[in-house]
Amino acid sequence: MLRDYMLTLDSELGLDKNENPFELPSSPREEMRKLISSIDLNRYPDPLALKLRNKLSARLNYPQECIVVGNGGDEILSMLFTAYVKPGDKVLTTYPCFSEYNRLCRIFGAEQHVLHLGFHENEITLDVEQLLDAVARISPKLILLDNPHNPTGMFLDPAVLLETAKLSPCPFVIDEAYVEFATKSSLDVLDKNIPSNLCILRTLSKAWGLAGLRVGYALCSEDIAMKLLDVKSPFNVNVVSQEIACIMLEYDEWMKSRVYSIRFLRDKFIEEVNELESFHAYPSQGNFVLVRTDIDREYMSTILKEKGIRLNMLELDVNGFTWMRISIGKEDELNYVIQVFRSIVRQPNVEFVIA
């Protein structure tokens, strides 16, 4: 059980952006401090980010020439649209999906086709047969599947996704922004023969705690890498971000320990939520949890605002529930959320004071 105690807050509690709640340790911070004082900021960064790509290649045992670095995962997605999507082209996603997919479809004038996830009592599913049927039926120019899935936390067998990718006529993007929090990744089952249409998207924003630096990367075929490099801006990742990313990749054990803590807190939070009347939390392989409630959305939003909690209130039209995606924070922060939920269920009119 999460401990029951009052959380002291100086500002709003932000659990809406799936950030890593833990600060970086002192050792890399000291390295970063020294780095900043030594960088020649009057010089442009390496346009190909070769040092960082070599670090990633060595760590992941993946060919350096098949790695592309971007200004966050969002820029990699934008590169993919630039390289492969013209106005009127079809793009296949799930519903729901990462909101950036929807935005890029609008910006590039793409025709977005969606596969509706199955929302069941205790799990959320994607019908792979329907995915294969949709690929054959609509002939998309780009397929975007996040795994672990955002915002539901659902996880698909990477082996199944890779087999599906081989049958796709277009770039098949597996967005693994949250994969460090999952039990397996596509790289765990990928052999040396990289499918020519495969693109695995990753980021240092989540598990590595570098959201403010904006560093994402694609692990793809050489064909896709060449196309992405052709369309990217010349100096897309600044020199500070490149160098700090190289520093942090040396702190693999810190990352793994923080991931372990977040997984533990996530699973305990799910247990706590599911003990409450009117709330249900779904299993998750990300650093966030999808929660449904039969409490009115407007009332729920009002209470959360009054209590100083920012969650991602999802606009999902599914089964008449109110849906929330809650980022996993520190123990006291999650405990505070549980207390607020409990106060709504047991004493909806009680005054709940933040110390």
Rank of each mutant, 00 (worst) to 15 (best):
G73Q: 01
L131A: 03
N312C: 07
D175K: 05
C66Q: 12
S233F: 12
E123G: 04
V340Y: 12
I224S: 05
H113S: 12
L132R: 14
C105K: 03
I36L: 14
N335T: 15
E123A: 10
L41C: 01
L204Q: 06
M300Q: 02
F22I: 13
M6Y: 14
P158Y: 11
I303V: 15
R266N: 04
M248G: 04
R292T: 14
A159Y: 08
E100V: 14
S196V: 13
N20Q: 08
P25Q: 11
N18D: 13
P63H: 02
K86Q: 15
V273L: 02
Y5P: 00
V291K: 05
V237P: 05
E351A: 10
D40Q: 11
E315I: 01
A218M: 03
E129W: 04
K141Q: 13
I143R: 07
E19C: 01
D191C: 06
A165M: 12
P28A: 12
K17P: 00
F352K: 14
C246W: 07
D89T: 06
K330E: 15
R3D: 15
G118P: 00
E306G: 03
C66A: 14
V240S: 10
C220H: 01
V237E: 01
V345K: 04
L204V: 04
L213T: 05
P140L: 07
L41M: 12
N42I: 06
H116V: 06
